[in-house]
């Protein structure tokens, strides 16, 4: 199996991460690296933005950085 798409950027995947712990945009981008999803940088940003807008996660500042999280 090619390794180029072993990770999928989906709403469910993002939801699972944000339920587990608060994450910054950079934390999320690390989970969905382009080399793992096969998406371009631009696609990754656009898709992740759409997903976050739909999920509308809670936000809190930790160490001066905005973190997103969800509760079950």
């Amino acid at each position: 199996t090619p390794s180029s798409s072993d990770v999928q950027l989906t709403e469910e995947a993002v939801r699972r991460y944000l339920i587990r712990k608060p994450m910054t945009t950079k934390d999320l981008l690390k989970k969905f690296q382009t080399k793992r999803t096969g998406l371009s940088s631009e696609q990754t940003v656009n898709v992740l933005a759409q997903i976050l807008k739909r999920l509308n996660p809670e936000r809190k500042m930790v160490n001066d950085k905005m973190h997103f999280y969800l509760t079950e």
């Binding site: 910054t24 945009t25 950079k26 999320l28 981008l29 690390k30 940088s41 990754t44 940003v45 656009n46 992740l48 933005a49 976050l52 807008k53 936000r59 905005m66």
Partner: peptide
């Protein structure tokens, strides 16, 4: 690279700022 990651994070935050 980490600078590309920084750029992507900045682009994502810009997208979200319009919304949030």
């Amino acid at each position: 690279s980490s600078s590309e990651a920084d750029e992507m994070a900045a682009a994502l935050e810009a997208e979200l700022n319009d919304f949030m």
